[in-house]
Write a protein that binds this DNA or RNA. Structure first.
Length: 465
RNA sequence: GUCCCCAUCGUCUAGAGGCCUAGGACACCGGCUUUUCACGUCGGCAACACGGGUUCAAAUCCCGUUGGGGGCACCA
């Protein structure tokens, strides 16, 4: 028995169905699988669960792969269930031989009606195994019906150990025998997933708690097919902020593609947020994949379903950006307008602490370098002193006071304070309005360096000075 | 309807009977620092859903109520 759960290598998978866009909830599950595999030097596989040919689309598959790459996930192998149909047929044969697969003849309408009736009578809507009755079966066959096939669950009660939820009991009498083959002979998820997980020796199945009953039924299927049963971890589903229901059932605003295209969140920030949502470390600053993998543990996660909070995410994003090195972002910086002739490293150093989203940089670039921005010259008394000083500092004789380097700029401003007998907002607000046309922003000394003496003189003293 | 899971500050959570007049992080508010934002620092606001038990003692255990999430497809 011990051998049944023996794990030779940690191997995880993320298995989306290409029937729509990935949303933040899917991404979280993908990330958690990835991190656990990474932590244990295991493998991480991507499996496209495209057995539902009516709903699966190639464009969704591409979008999913794009989204996962954007998030920074990497995987060893990509599989497609549509390419493995012969393998599922073989597995079905095995089950038939073992008398675990039996034909059923009810139509979808009949089944739906039966469920409705059961609910009305306070009964759980469980399949009643009518097709197992010889006389019913006989009658159905005489009617010329084509069968679909169900897996016969053993009706027993077992204890399941879930890495997230701990021990819980499951009574199989409360479950319907799952349909494994459609009337047209094509296999369903319950079968294909187990066959693939078994054949790939998946060690851990990490997914949302909407799968708990699936996992129970599938554990019997793993056994019936002679596979080791993987370890299971079912995480509480994320909820949306507006409490408008679970993410797993919703599309739209929280689709990864939309989040990505909005440009409001860095992939790394989203990754870190989703990796820790539901744990007590949600807002930690250190967020490299390495660090996240190292600290990962299923025990860290609460059992209640957490809310996806955009404000919290924005805060993580802001702090992440403030800590980002120029080298890690210079490629994207180059795509911003107005920065062609600008020292971009300097620009980044100047503004990285003043942005929440990367796109905020466009506004700072505009305020810094655009001719169209309205800026106000400082009042005359400030202007006259500062312009005198600027002229002096630009002369070669006064090399000591030239506006090069942050120290010199700070020194310059302190002298200005003393000469004008002005401090704080009284002095700096007018300077800001003159330099950027905006009363807030980075240190004025930094702006001095960024703008350079010529622009500085123009904006503080006017064109004709 | 039924089965499973859950219930602590605005948010994510710590808490496995006395260490809890409930801790942390983020947000928020205020002081300091300061040249604005930020960073830093100090402080503040702020929660055990409700009702019954059990116990010398309950956020913690039990029961009920209420509330939330999930499952109950020829979807995945």
């Amino acid at each position: 028995m011990a051998a049944k759960t023996q794990i030779d290598k940690i191997r995880l998978r993320f298995a989306p169905s290409p029937t729509g866009m990935l949303h933040a909830g899917n991404a979280r599950i993908a990330i958690l699988n990835f991190l656990f595999a990474k932590q244990n030097n295991g493998e991480f596989l991507l499996r496209i669960d495209d057995t539902d040919t009516a709903r699966s689309q190639k464009i969704f598959e591409k979008a999913i792969i794009n989204d996962l790459k954007w998030l920074g996930l990497a995987w060893q192998k990509t599989m497609r269930q549509s390419e493995r149909m012969h393998i599922y047929a073989k597995a079905a044969d095995t089950l038939r031989k073992n008398k675990r697969l039996y034909p059923c003849y009810e139509t979808p309408d009949e089944l739906a009606l039966a469920r409705k009736l059961q609910l009305k009578n306070s009964q759980p809507p469980i399949y009643n195994r009518d097709s197992l009755l010889p006389e019913k079966k006989q009658q159905y066959i005489l009617e010329g019906r084509k069968p679909h096939f169900r897996f016969k669950l053993e009706h027993k009660t077992i204890a399941i150990n879930d890495l997230c939820r701990g021990e819980s009991k499951i009574n199989f009498a409360n479950l319907s025998d799952p349909v494994l083959l459609r009337e047209d002979g094509t296999p369903l998820y319950t079968l294909t997933s187990v066959v693939d997980d078994g054949e790939c020796s998946i060690s851990h199945i990490v997914r949302g708690e909407d799968h708990v009953t699936n996992s129970a039924a599938q554990s019997q299927l793993f056994e019936a097919l002679g596979f080791h049963i993987p370890l299971f971890a079912h995480l509480p589903l994320m909820r949306a902020q507006d409490n408008d229901g679970p993410l797993s059932k919703r599309e739209g605003s929280l689709s990864l593609q939309k989040i990505r295209e909005s440009g409001e969140v860095e992939a790394q920030s989203l990754f870190a947020y989703l990796a820790r949502l539901g744990t007590a470390r949600m807002a930690q600053v250190e967020s490299s994949q390495h660090a996240l993998a190292k600290e990962f543990s299923f025990r860290n996660f609460g059992r209640a379903s957490p809310i996806f909070d955009l404000h919290q995410l924005a805060e993580i994003n802001r702090r992440g950006l403030a800590a980002t090195d120029f080298n890690d972002i210079k490629k994207r910086l180059a795509s911003l307008p107005l920065l062609n002739n600008v020292d971009q490293a300097l620009f980044w150093e100047t503004f990285r602490g003043n942005i929440t989203h990367f796109d905020d940089l466009a506004r700072w670039a505009d305020l810094s370098f655009s001719d169209k921005v309205k800026r106000e010259l400082p009042p005359r008394e400030i202007r006259s002193v500062i312009c005198e000083m600027l002229t002096a500092s630009s002369s070669k004789q006064d090399a000591d006071n030239q506006l090069v380097g942050i120290t010199n700029c700070e020194k310059f401003l302190h002298i200005l304070e003393e000469r004008l007998k002005l401090k704080g907002a009284k002095l700096y607000r007018p300077l800001r309005l003159a330099l950027l046309g905006c009363p807030t922003g980075p240190e004025v000394a930094r702006l001095f360096i960024l703008l350079g003496q010529k622009t500085l003189t123009q904006r503080l003293c006017g064109e004709n000075y």
